[in-house]
C-alpha cells in the first residue's frame, strides 16, 4: 500500500487490521488550513523553536539543521510556530490570499488537492 497513493475504494484496503508504518504521510492534512504561516527567511535565525513545537512536524530543515520552510502538504495552520518564534520571522496570513498562487499548496510538482478543489 505504501507509496501507492490515496486509497480510492474499499477493495484497496488491505485485509486484516494491520496497517503499514508511516502511511499517514499520504494524507494531505494541509487541506484543513485556513491561516498560512509565511516564513521570512531574512529574519529567521534557525533557533529551531518552531521545529520543536510544531505538532505536525511540518517545519522542514536542511542537513545543517537550518529551517528551510514549511511543508504545506501537512501544515494545519494552527499558528504555534508564529507564536513561539523569538525573531518574529513567521507571520500568519489568510489562506485565501494564496488561492491564485500556482502549485504551491502541495509538495513536489503536483498542484495537490487544495489546488484542484479551488481551481488554482
Amino acid at each position: 500500500m505504501s507509496g501507492s497513493g490515496l486509497l480510492k475504494c474499499w477493495q484497496d484496503v488491505p485485509p486484516g487490521t494491520v496497517t503499514f508504518g508511516a502511511t499517514s504521510r499520504e494524507v494531505e492534512t494541509g487541506l484543513w488550513r485556513s491561516m498560512r504561516p509565511v516564513l521570512d527567511a531574512a529574519k529567521c535565525v534557525s533557533c529551531l523553536k518552531c521545529w520543536l513545537q510544531c505538532p505536525d512536524a511540518s517545519i522542514t530543515t536542511d542537513s545543517d539543521a537550518r529551517v528551510t520552510g514549511i511543508d504545506f502538504f501537512f501544515c494545519k495552520g494552527c499558528g504555534v510556530c508564529a507564536k513561539v518564534c523569538p525573531a518574529g520571522a513567521i507571520s500568519m496570513c489568510p489562506e485565501s490570499d494564496f488561492l491564485s498562487a500556482p502549485a504551491e499548496a502541495s509538495r513536489g510538482a503536483s498542484p495537490g488537492k487544495a489546488g484542484e478543489l479551488f481551481g488554482a
Binding site: 508511516a22 499517514s24 504521510r25 529551531l48 520543536l52 505536525d56 511543508d71 494545519k76 504555534v80
Partner: peptide, 20 residues
C-alpha cells in the same frame, strides 16, 4: 537539537490530531 532534526521521529506527519 541540530542532531535531532536529522532523525525521523516515531510519529510522522499526516496524523489527524486537531490543529494546535
Amino acid at each position: 537539537i541540530k542532531e535531532m532534526t536529522k532523525r525521523e521521529g516515531p510519529l510522522c506527519e499526516g496524523h489527524r490530531m486537531c490543529p494546535g
